[in-house]
């Protein structure tokens, strides 16, 4: 196996252009090292951790700029993330063990494009965007279109994610991230549901609703039909029930060793209901009538 430690983004991009499909990018390594030990060694490993300027978390106007090499622990311990993006904070907090959070990077969690990637459903409801670098130039892409399948993203084999731009949610909005797993944070999510709602000025109706579902489709998804059903309405018991069932119908989970597809659908329904109930109460001060 060849091994490279590029010192600059340009150097890394030309290595990826040259080695293409053979090359595997490594940052924290918490997933890639397991692949090397249990699956197969890539032809060449490109370690991007020595590239400067890819870390850090800063406020940038109305959004937060998170460097792709920021660790999950950096995200979890950032007071900016905790104050401004509690939905993302929650997913970083429920992310495996302290040892893993100290090593794993947010860029790695995103580029791995696992449907169950902990931060992905929160990033979808926050309408975050990625800055993608290629040897031909840079582009910004919303994460809504970035994920193309398990392990597949619009980076292909030649691009690198350099930063993540997360806009602050609207004033008065409330969000939650709910994870279902057998052994709490240590386990990979069977289902993850992120809900972000913004009430109207009178706090009577849902002006904006965003529901992100993780681990229940080939990529993390937004439950867009459910969102459309809820938008502009007041949350009633009947509507809550209908919305939760619709979110479950929008999911297309597989059965695997962690749970059956049928069970995952039940959990999507339960967590969507719980997430909407909690955020509605928090945002409007009212019970679901």
């Amino acid at each position: 196996m060849d091994y490279f430690e590029p010192k600059s983004l340009d150097e890394a991009l030309s290595l990826l252009a040259k080695h293409g499909h053979e090359a595997k990018v490594i940052a924290g390594g918490t997933d890639v090292m397991v692949d090397i030990k249990y699956k197969e060694e890539p032809g060449c490993l490109v370690n991007i951790k020595k590239i400067s300027g890819l870390g850090g978390i800063q406020e940038n106007g109305g959004s937060l700029r998170i460097g792709s090499l920021a660790t999950i622990r950096d995200v979890e311990t950032s007071s900016l993330v905790r104050d401004k993006l509690p939905v993302l904070w929650e997913s970083a907090h429920q992310f495996a063990s302290l040892q893993i959070r100290n090593t794993a990077t947010i860029g790695g969690n995103i580029c791995r494009a696992s449907p169950s990637g902990e931060t992905l459903a929160p990033l979808l409801v926050l309408e975050a965007k990625g800055k993608l670098a290629f040897s031909e130039g840079e582009k910004t892409e919303p994460f809504m279109s970035f994920f193309q399948g398990p392990g597949k993203t619009s980076l292909g084999t030649k691009g690198l994610l350099t930063e993540i731009d997360v806009p602050f949610p609207a004033e008065g909005s409330r969000g939650v991230y709910l994870k279902h797993a057998v052994r709490g944070a240590m386990d990979i999510a069977m289902v993850g549901v992120a809900v972000l709602i913004t009430p109207d000025a009178a706090r009577n109706t849902l002006q904006d609703v965003r529901i992100g579902l993780g681990a229940v489709a080939p990529t993390p998804i937004r439950a867009s039909k459910t969102e459309a059903l809820l938008r502009g309405k007041s949350l009633t018991v009947a509507l809550l029930k209908e919305a939760a069932a619709m979110a479950a119908a929008e999911s297309s989970p597989i059965s695997d060793q962690r749970s059956s597809g049928e069970y995952r659908r039940w959990i999507v329904e339960a967590l969507t209901r719980r997430g909407l109930e909690q955020t509605w109460k928090a945002a409007t001060g009212k019970e679901v009538a």
Binding site: Y3, E5, I26, G29, T30, M33, V34, L45, N47, S97, L98, Q99, I100, N102, T103
Partner: peptide, 10 residues
């Protein structure tokens, strides 16, 4: 604290 098994020796 980190897991040395999933950290690259390099």
């Amino acid at each position: 604290p980190i897991n040395s098994c999933v950290t690259l020796a390099a």
